[in-house]
Design a protein around this nucleic acid. Structure first.
Length: 726
DNA sequence: GATACGGATTTATAGACAGCATGTC
DNA sequence: CTATAAATCCGTATC
C-alpha cells in the first residue's frame, strides 16, 4: 500500500513521504486498515524493526490533527523514551509538540499540558496519574510499546494497571512482540488484532553445534568447532556480530578472547581509531578489560558499565568501528542496535533459585536484532548448543511458539502499592469498588474470577489500615490518610514507608549516616547487594562496631535475614565511603562492583533519602533532625563531607571541584565571592565557564558589551571580572 | 621448611522503573 | 535443584 492512498490527513502523508517512505510494509498496511484510524483499539503483534513505530506515528499524528487532545506513548526504558523523543521530534513541523518525561526529567507539573505527544515510562505515567494533573483528561490515545512486558514479574502489574485505568478513557494501541496468546490480550483490550511475522530484512535462524551450523530449513554449513568462528566469519565478510551471554563475566571474557582474533582483521586506520577510543576511557578496573577488547575491535556491554561507556560502545558499533559486541540481556530489549549476525551463546540463566531456560519470547527478541535494514539483505540468528541437545534447541527456540502472557497483578509487592494507590489516589472508597475496578484488569479477564485476588486484596487493606496508610469509617468506607497518600505519590513500596515510619523514633534520638543508610538499604525498593562469602566476617564485625548506630538488631547467623543483612551493611558502607569522599575507583575495587552498580545504588539511595525526609515531615518533625537529614541528603547526592556542603550548593560545583576549591583555601561561598578570578582559575577543574556561572549565581551583573563571542569580548570580560569580584 | 604446582572444591551468577529541582569533571 | 569459570583450597612434589 502506498502512503498516498492512506486515508489520513494530507499533512501526515507529506511528512512521511519527505522522510523518504512511499510504500508501507504489509503488516503496517494491515494494521492501518484494521480500524485504528477510526478510533478502534488495536493490538499489533509483529517483530521488532518491522515498523511498529511508524504505524503508531501515523495513528498519533492523524488523530491529534483531526481531534486535538493528547497522545501518550509508553515505553519500558528511559533510553527508549529518549530514542522515541528524537524520532517523534519530526512531527513538530506540523505544530505537534513532543515531550519526554521520565524520572530523570520533570514531574507532575502542568507543564506537560502544553504538549501533544508525551513519551513516558510506564512507571512515570502511573505516577502522573496518581498526581492527577489536569491534562490527563485530554488524553485521546495511549500507545503501549512492548506491551508483552505485562507478563514481566516485577514491572508487569504497573503496565496492566495503567491500561486498565485508560481502557474506557482513550483509544489504545498496544504494540507487542509475538506472544502465545495475543488473542487473549486483544479481547481484554476490546481491540482488533493484527499478527504477522513479516520482516523488512529476511531472518535466517539456525543452531550451531560442534562446528555444524544447521539452518531452520535443514541446510548445513561447516565451521571450526568453536562457536567463536561464527563471529570471526561475520567480521571476515565485512559484517558485524552481536553475541548474547548470560553473565557479565562471560561477556567480558568472550570479548577479550574474541578481540585477539578480530584484531588481525582490522585495517590500519581502524586499529588507530580503536586505540584512540580505548585511550579516551576513564581509568577503572572494568575499563581495563574494556580497553583491551576495544583495541581489538570488540566490546562487552552490560549494566555494570557507566552511561558514557555504554553509549560510546553503541555509537562505535553503529559506525561499524566496533565489529563484535558481547552482551548480557541489556541489549536484547533496549535500544535499537541491529547486527548482521546474532549469536546466542546461552539459553539458560541463573535465576536466584537455580538455572532456568530463557523464555522463547526473550530469545526471539534477541534473534530479532539480526539484520541491519538498508545494509543487509538477510540477517542471521544462531543459537549455540554447547551442552544442550541441538535438536531440542531447534524445536524450542527456532520452530517453537513463544510463551503465553500471564497477568502479574497478583505479585505481592506490585499489588500492594497498586491497592494503596487505588484508595488514596483513584477514589476507590470501599471494598466493593476495589473489586469492581479489579474486574477491568487483564488478571480478571484471564482468570474470570477474583476470589483469590480478593483474598490478597483484603490482606493488603488490613495491612494498610493497621499501619495508618488508610482508615475505615463506620460505614466501611476507606479514608485516605496523609501517610498513605504521600507514600503513593512518592512511588515507594508501602513496606518501605512502614520501615521508615517505624524507625523514626530511634532515628530522632540518634541520627547518623550509617544507621540511616542501613535503613535505606533494608527497604524493598533498594537494590540488593550480596556480601561475598569471604567478606561476610568483615561486614559482621563492622555491624558490631556500629551496633549502637543501627536502628535494627543484628540478626543471628541462623536467621534467614542474616545474609541480606550483611548485604545491607555492605551497601551502607559503600554509601558511607561515598559521602566521605573515597575516590570512585577505590570503591569499585574495595567492593568489587562496577561503575554502573555504584551509579544505580546512589540513584536509588538519593530517591529513598528524599522519600524518607518527605515522610518524616508528616510526623511532627524536630527541626534539628530535619535539617540534619537534609544536609545528609545533599552529602549523599554529591558525595562530599560536611565541610563541603556550602560549596556544593553552588552551580556546577560537585564532588571534585568542591574538594579542589576547599583545599585551595576557598572554604565558604564568601571566600569565593571575594576571590580573584585569576586565583579561582588556578584551581583544578575550574575554568572560565564555571567562574562565569558562579558570577551569575552571586547576582553580579555581566559588564555590558562583554557578551560571548568575539575574542575581543572574551578579553574584555576577563579583564572586568576581576574588578567585579575583588 | 618454604615454595610451586596441579587437581579438587568452593563460590558466584541479568537488568533497571520511581520524587524533586536543576546542572558533574 | 539443570552450568560454567574463576577463585580458593589442599595435598604433593621439589628445592
Amino acid at each position: 500500500m502506498r502512503i498516498e492512498e492512506l486515508p489520513v490527513d494530507e499533512r501526515v502523508k507529506r511528512v512521511i513521504i519527505e522522510r523518504g517512505i512511499e510504500e508501507l510494509y504489509p503488516p503496517q498496511a494491515k494494521a492501518l486498515k484494521s480500524g485504528v484510524l477510526d478510533g478502534k483499539n488495536l493490538v499489533l503483534a509483529i517483530p521488532t524493526a518491522s515498523g511498529k513505530t511508524l504505524v503508531s506515528e501515523i495513528v498519533m499524528a492523524n488523530k491529534l490533527l483531526r481531534e486535538g487532545g493528547k497522545a501518550v506513548y509508553l515505553v519500558p526504558l528511559k533510553a527508549l523514551a529518549e530514542e522515541k523523543y528524537r524520532e517523534f521530534k519530526a512531527w513538530e513541523v506540523l505544530g505537534l509538540r513532543v515531550a519526554a518525561t521520565t524520572g530523570d526529567y520533570d514531574s507532575t507539573d502542568e507543564w506537560l499540558g502544553r504538549y501533544d505527544i508525551i513519551i513516558a515510562t510506564s512507571e512515570k505515567f502511573d505516577s502522573l496519574l496518581r498526581h492527577g494533573s489536569n491534562w490527563i483528561r485530554d488524553i485521546k490515545l495511549v500507545v503501549a510499546d512492548e506491551v508483552h512486558l505485562i507478563g514481566s514479574y516485577d514491572r508487569g502489574a504497573t503496565l496492566e494497571m495503567i491500561l486498565s485505568h485508560m481502557l474506557d478513557r482513550a483509544q489504545i494501541l498496544a504494540l507487542s512482540a509475538t506472544v502465545g496468546n495475543a488473542e487473549e490480550l486483544a479481547e481484554w483490550l476490546n481491540a482488533e488484532l493484527v499478527v504477522s511475522d513479516w520482516r523488512p530484512v529476511e531472518l535466517k535462524k539456525g543452531v550451531f553445534h560442534l562446528g555444524e551450523l544447521v539452518w531452520e530449513d535443514g541446510k548445513r554449513e561447516r565451521y571450526p568447532e568453536n562457536w567463536e568462528s561464527l563471529a570471526i566469519d561475520a567480521v571476515k565478510r565485512g559484517k558485524q556480530a552481536l553475541v548474547f551471554v548470560n553473565t557479565r563475566r562471560s561477556a567480558e571474557k568472550e570479548a577479550v578472547s574474541l578481540s585477539s582474533k578480530v584484531a588481525r582483521l582490522l585495517t590500519k586506520p581502524e586499529t588507530r581509531q580503536l586505540k584512540e577510543l580505548a585511550d579516551s576511557l576513564e581509568e577503572n578496573p572494568t575499563n581495563e578489560k574494556l580497553k583491551k577488547a576495544i583495541r581489538g575491535g570488540v566490546a562487552f556491554h552490560h549494566a555494570g558499565l557507566s552511561r558514557t561507556e555504554r553509549t560510546m560502545i553503541e555509537d562505535a558499533f553503529r559506525e561499524g568501528l566496533i565489529k563484535v559486541i558481547t552482551a548480557t540481556p541489556t541489549l536484547s530489549a533496549g535500544i535499537n542496535l541491529p547486527a548482521f549476525r546474532v549469536i546466542i551463546r546461552d539459553t539458560k540463566r541463573y535465576a536466584g533459585f537455580g538455572w532456568t531456560d530463557i523464555p522463547v519470547l526473550e530469545i526471539q527478541q534477541m534473534m530479532g536484532r539480526a539484520g541491519r535494514p538498508k545494509y543487509d539483505r538477510v540477517g542471521e540468528a544462531i543459537v549455540v548448543a554447547r551442552t544442550e541437545d541441538p535438536k531440542k534447541l531447534m524445536e524450542k527456540y527456532i520452530h517453537g511458539k513463544p510463551e503465553k502472557l500471564f497477568s502479574m497483578l497478583a505479585n505481592e509487592q506490585a499489588f500492594r502499592s497498586q491497592v494503596l494507590a487505588l484508595i488514596t489516589n483513584f477514589g476507590v472508597s470501599n471494598f466493593r469498588e476495589l473489586i469492581g475496578f479489579l474486574e477491568k484488569t487483564f488478571y480478571f479477564h484471564q482468570r474470570k474470577d477474583t476470589s483469590s485476588i480478593e483474598y490478597k486484596a483484603k490482606d493488603i487493606v488490613y495491612f494498610l489500615i493497621e499501619n495508618e496508610f488508610v482508615d475505615m469509617d463506620m460505614n466501611d468506607r476507606f479514608i485516605a490518610l496523609p501517610f498513605g497518600k504521600r507514600t503513593s505519590q512518592l512511588y515507594i513500596d508501602p513496606l518501605t514507608a512502614k520501615r521508615f515510619k517505624d524507625a523514626f523514633p530511634k532515628l530522632e534520638r540518634n541520627p547518623n549516616p550509617f544507621g540511616i543508610f542501613q535503613l535505606i538499604a533494608s527497604t524493598p525498593d533498594m537494590a540488593t547487594l550480596n556480601a561475598r562469602r569471604r567478606e561476610m566476617e568483615d561486614y559482621l564485625d563492622l555491624a558490631y562496631e556500629f551496633e549502637e548506630k543501627l536502628y535494627t538488631n543484628i540478626p543471628y547467623y541462623e536467621d534467614y535475614r542474616f545474609q541480606t543483612f550483611l548485604g545491607e551493611i555492605k551497601t551502607a558502607k559503600i554509601l558511607l565511603d561515598w559521602i566521605n569522599e573515597v575516590p570512585e575507583a577505590r570503591i569499585y575495587e574495595t567492593y568489587s562492583i562496577d561503575p554502573g552498580d555504584l551509579y544505580r545504588i546512589l540513584e536509588l539511595a538519593d530517591w529513598l533519602m528524599y522519600s524518607l525526609i518527605e515522610l518524616y515531615k508528616l510526623f511532627e518533625p524536630e527541626k534539628d533532625v530535619l535539617n540534619y537529614l537534609r544536609d545528609l541528603h545533599l552529602r549523599l547526592r554529591h558525595g562530599v563531607r560536611e565541610e563541603l556542603l556550602e560549596l556544593v550548593r553552588l552551580p556546577n560545583i560537585g564532588r571534585k571541584r568542591a574538594r579542589a576549591l576547599y583545599n585551595a583555601g576557598f572554604r565558604t561561598q564568601e571566600d569565593i565571592m571575594r576571590a580573584k578570578v585569576r586565583d579561582l582559575l588556578e584551581v583544578e577543574g575550574i575554568g572560565m565557564k564555571v567562574v562565569e556561572g558562579l558570577f551569575r549565581h552571586f547576582g553580579v551583573e555581566m559588564p555590558k558589551g562583554a557578551k560571548k563571542g568575539s575574542k575581543k569580548a572574551e578579553r574584555v570580560r576577563k579583564g572586568t571580572l576581576d574588578d567585579f569580584l575583588k
